[in-house]
Design a protein around this nucleic acid. Structure first.
Length: 489
RNA sequence: GCUCCGUUGGUGUAGUCCGGCCAAUCAUUCUGGCCUUUCGAGCCGGAGACUCGGGUUCGAAUCCCGAACGGAGCACCA
């Protein structure tokens, strides 16, 4: 028996971890990622793919990849495979994959059903003419055609000339947003489709195929950019006509990537005209380009989860990405020496001990258990031009030298002595055994120099840190040259 | 122009629905010191935000109205 009128304070929601809870039921959720195959995935796609993947993982559910290739003019055939590869890199393997180009007959079937219900009509208005009527809330003359007439025209549709007719879905001719009024569901398209050839001439519009598929595939939640806000409303009419339950639509804002204003089409253009080397050019925002630079998919994943699915726009900076990435790779990356813009020095007056000496250095200073790399020293090394200045220099972990004009002399050995001398501690590469190396920077420029011999034991894809230079990923292992891609400091 | 939408430090976020526990969270960034034979990491400290104006209220980042700024859509693309 409750004697006291306990006032239960409403629990403030706990600090949110990860993504916001999804609206609606969390049982057996079905979500999808539905890109247009116009190129490989870029960072903007990750903004859509990751939250879908994260939610499915969080609640347990089904992830569907649906390739939306219903515009033959915007299909880049290689993209079909690239998209799957890029998703895999992100850590997503779809439970089911669909190609909309396989599903035209399904769309036709529903189109006919809509016509029979009187919810769609064949419109042979000239485009500008229709717009004029629509903008004034006036139905076009075809809107009231009989079902029979519409079906007749629908059957003749494939034989009509491109641009002369469309199938429209009835909405509300008085809708306050003109964009919503009686939208197009099918059009005639003569372009050859990479997968279908010229099999069909009647192509569904995105709003139609998307709605039908989202329904048939049992989508419970649909994540999409806020540029689709009007489309969501257009689609709602189709759901009403068919008496289908609508998925939960969630819209997210635009993502602006610092220094990468490039769209897929611009990138493609740049590749074709030689401005960029390929889809993995470090200046591009494609996931494969980012991966090539040594940015971990986990970094992108975490970033996208942090940004979440809110409606306001976000601008992400490289600083943020680099910071997150550094946290992940710092303890994985073994350390090596790379000398950029090298200058050879011969240390005079070296004690005999250093005439033939092998320096063992930890692969990672915080993890000595990982083992060592070896640097053979016989008095002659490369150091960065930038560090060659009159004064005292300590070759890291080795010796202290004095630089005077052209002359470099042995000074002392101990680290304590270097402190007294206030010597600058620098990396170096022994002349004997130095390996040619190039580092491709994020602006596409190349820094040339030498790296230490043990780098040849690395595998392509390894992320390392060149001490005092930055984190890099080994991209190519050639006979006499190692090519790295620069990640960040 | 019309129709929508958004606005928390340099950047990204939490909190806004259900006003007080918010002199506002966390991350990144920048920064002072310590430490370290890397300009990496680590440790300790610091800087930095509720777009503006009204209103409601004992009390507003949170509710209401207006403005400014920003964004999206207005295709026979997706």
């Amino acid at each position: 028996m409750e004697k006291f009128n306990l006032v239960i304070k409403k629990n403030k929601p706990k600090k949110r971890e990860g993504l916001e809870e999804l609206p609606g039921s969390h049982e057996n959720i079905v979500m999808r990622f539905a890109p247009n195959p116009s190129g490989p995935l870029h960072i903007g796609h990750a903004r859509a793919a990751v939250p879908n993947g994260e939610y499915v993982k969080k609640y347990g559910g089904k992830f569907i990849l649906r390739i939306e290739d219903t515009d033959p003019k915007r299909v880049y055939p290689d993209a079909y495979d690239m998209i799957v590869e890029d998703l895999k890199w992100l850590g997503i393997e779809a439970d089911e994959i669909y190609y909309q180009s396989d599903r035209f007959e399904i769309y036709y079937k529903y189109a006919e059903e809509l016509i029979k219900k009187g919810s769609a009509y064949m419109c042979t208005c000239e485009g500008g003419e229709f717009k004029k009527l629509k903008d004034n809330c006036k139905p076009c003359p075809h809107r009231d055609q009989s079902v029979e007439e519409n079906l007749k025209l629908w059957r003749e549709f494939p034989d009509m000339e491109a641009g002369t007719a469309v199938l429209r879905i009835k909405t509300d001719i008085n809708h306050k947003n003109p964009a919503i009024r009686d939208w197009v569901a099918f059009r005639i398209e003569d372009a050859e489709h990479p997968r279908l050839g010229n099999k069909y001439r009647i192509y569904p519009m995105m709003n139609f195929s998307v709605s039908v598929d989202d329904y048939l595939m049992g989508m419970t939640h649909v994540l999409r950019g806020k540029d689709h806000l009007a489309n969501s409303e257009k689609q709602s009419y189709l759901y009403k006509h068919m008496d289908w339950d609508m998925p939960e639509f969630i819209h997210y804002g635009r993502l602006k990537m610092e220094d990468i204003p490039l769209s897929t089409s611009k990138a493609k253009e740049g590749i074709e005209n030689g401005t960029y080397s390929s889809w993995t050019d470090p200046r591009l925002g494609t996931l494969r380009a980012i991966a090539r630079r040594g940015i971990q998919s986990e970094t992108i994943w975490n970033l996208m989860v942090e940004i979440g699915v809110k409606m306001s726009d976000s601008a992400i900076s490289w600083k943020k990405i680099f910071g997150l990435n550094r946290n992940i790779i710092e303890n994985k990356a073994n350390r090596y020496f790379f000398v950029e813009n090298p200058i050879e020095i011969n240390v005079l007056d070296c004690p005999d001990k250093f005439k033939d000496f092998t320096l063992k250095k930890e692969l990672h200073p915080d993890y000595p258990d990982r083992g060592f790399r070896k640097l053979k020293f016989n008095g002659s090394v490369y150091i960065p031009q930038e560090d060659y200045k009159d004064g005292h220099i300590r070759l890291m972990d080795l010796i202290n030298v004095d630089v005077h004009g052209d002359e470099v002399k042995f000074n002392s050995e101990s680290f304590e002595e270097s402190k007294k001398l206030k010597a600058k501690i620098i990396q170096f590469v022994p002349t004997d055994g130095a390996v040619n190396a190039e580092v491709v920077m994020d602006d596409g420029s190349i820094k040339k120099g030498f790296c230490e011999p043990d780098c040849t034991n690395l595998n392509v894809g390894d992320i390392i840190q060149f001490e005092r230079f930055g984190f890099c990923r080994l991209d190519e292992l050639k006979e006499d040259l190692l090519i790295f891609y620069f990640a960040h400091k």
